[in-house]
Write a protein that binds this DNA or RNA. Structure first.
Length: 460
RNA sequence: GGCCCCAUCGUCUAAUGGUUAGGACAGCAGGUUUUCAAUCUGUUAACCGGAGUUCGACUCUCCGUGGGGUCACCA
């Protein structure tokens, strides 16, 4: 392992969205690429807003994404070092205690600690942006602690980073203005200034910093909706980064191989949820049949298993695979009418005979001059039913063989006038799977039974 | 407003002085074994503006303009 160390320091004050985790991802990729250490540090110096629930959310998110870390710490547990640093700065007259009225309007006089700003120009080299110079004079003597026992962000970060020997600080561009004052503190403490890489911000539709407030989903919500971690990883990495070339679908391993800070964009990038959907579909295609079934099954309501046997459910899931964007679409499979007809008879008391008849009868635009009546439809269904009855066990092994057996008849009579009533009698859905897939899923008996029901209504 | 950063299709981007400015998502059109998907094919669409530098600028420089970030006893 090299001596390179990076870290991801989220504050547990909310469920972070994809923008924050992209920072974690960049750090992780950089670490793996360079055979370095990746640290997770929970920044909870703001005790009022920090919550255990959020800390757990961070850990769960990282684990779900598969971003393992080589070290874990909680900032508040390093309070002794922070206090020591505050004392050291005060003793060396690089900081001082100042009696001031509390900002909360209470009128209480408190003793806060301010940094004695040397008022100089700080220049640092950013690995993405290049040289950046800032005159720190206008920062004034900024506050570094609420009191001698209670450090604030800048002080805590600098002390912690120094102690864990962080060499590369990879963080969002919104931290760029924090960098000069942190460098001032590092210098005052006599520590080593790390390398900085400020990555472009992830923007919302309005081109402003992505935020929960504007509807950005947390990583945990994506997990809940049935997105694949590999898709989130892939999509997030491609916000503000592109390895060049035309390949876009990458696994985590491949991402590590091609990751390079020099290929990180400088400008902010708008997050496109529609493209994330595409990434997810592509990553679903990468799954083996068994992995896919296993993944998707965890999103299906338990009652479905009572209504349909595992064998049939597997058939349904495999056939439905191409149209699935994310697994959570199956979350109401037990009641969603775009799925229920696949495993429950659509012929129920809610539908009138007239309704069923109008569905099964070939619509005008599809007739192509042919004369279609209830009687002819009944006759066609009769023929189709007989063909299905003649199918052998092995014919039911694939959609393809079922189609083969029915195809000649459909061509002879006219595809539209055979296939439409067939599909409708099996599904009673305006939009549905094709009839061959339906017969494959339903099996001989149920297929024939549904067709017979449609037929009996045709006769009335 | 001060300070800092950025600027290629609607969006994400490729191009590192010489290309008909490429790809992906979305859009549109069409094909496909009925519907809806899926899939295949085709297609619309961009170098923020102005000066330079150069034989030659998307690429380099400067000035505008636009956008963003940040100005806490939050992180």
């Amino acid at each position: 392992m090299t001596n390179i160390v990076v870290r991801f320091p989220p504050s547990p004050t909310g469920h972070a969205h994809i923008g924050s985790y992209r920072t974690a991802i960049f750090n992780y990729l950089f670490a793996k690429k360079h055979n370095a250490k990746f640290l997770l540090r929970i920044e909870d110096t703001d005790k009022a807003r920090s919550k255990m629930e959020y800390q757990e959310g961070i850990i769960e998110s990282l684990s779900w994404l598969g971003l393992g870390y080589d070290g874990f710490s909680i900032q508040s547990e390093n309070i002794e070092s922070h206090k020591k640093a505050i004392q050291k700065l005060i003793v060396e007259d690089k900081a001082y205690v100042s009696k001031e009225e509390a900002k909360d309007g209470s009128g209480v006089i408190k003793e806060i600690v301010r940094f004695r700003n040397p008022n100089k120009v700080v220049t640092f080299k950013d690995l993405i942006l290049g040289d950046i110079s800032v005159d720190t004079t206008d920062l004034g003597d900024f506050v570094i602690a609420r009191n001698t026992e209670d450090p604030l962000y800048h002080l805590a970060v600098v002390v912690d980073d120094t102690e864990s020997e962080v060499t590369h600080v990879i963080r969002g561009m919104d931290h760029i203005s924090n960098t000069p004052r942190q460098i001032l503190l590092i210098e005052a403490l006599g520590a080593k200034v790390p390398e900085y890489a400020h990555i472009p911000l992830v923007l919302g539709e309005d081109k402003q910093k992505l935020s929960k407030r504007k509807g950005a989903l947390s990583v945990l919500e994506y997990k809940k909706r049935g997105y694949l971690p590999s898709a989130i990883l892939n999509a997030a990495t491609f916000i503000g980064f592109n390895p060049g070339g035309e390949k876009e679908i990458y696994t985590l391993q491949e991402l590590i191989e091609v990751f390079d800070l020099s290929k990180v964009q400088k400008g902010g990038a708008v997050f496109n949820p529609v493209k994330l959907d595409w990434f997810n579909q592509e990553h679903m295609k990468l799954l083996s049949e068994d992995t896919y079934i296993e993944f998707v099954t965890s999103f299906i309501p338990a009652v479905v298993a009572e209504k349909v046997d595992a064998q049939t459910l597997r058939k349904i899931l495999l056939i439905v695979r191409d149209r699935l964007v994310f697994a959570g679409e199956l979350e109401h499979m037990d009641t969603d009418s775009s799925y229920t007809y696949m495993f429950e008879s659509p012929y129920d008391s809610h539908r009138s005979d007239e309704e069923i008849q109008s569905l099964v009868l070939v619509p005008e635009k599809m007739k192509k001059g042919a004369v279609v009546t209830a009687a002819t439809t009944h006759a066609i269904l009769e023929d189709v039913k007989n063909i299905i009855a003649s199918l052998t066990e092995s014919d039911f092994n694939s959609v393809e063989s079922i189609k083969e057996k029915l195809w000649a008849y459909a061509e002879e009579k006219g595809k539209g006038i055979v296939l439409w009533p067939l599909r409708m009698s099996l599904t009673l859905q305006e939009k549905s799977l094709d009839p061959f897939s339906m017969i494959y899923i339903l099996g001989k008996d149920e297929s024939i039974s549904r067709i017979q029901k449609a037929q009996s209504i045709m006769l009335q």
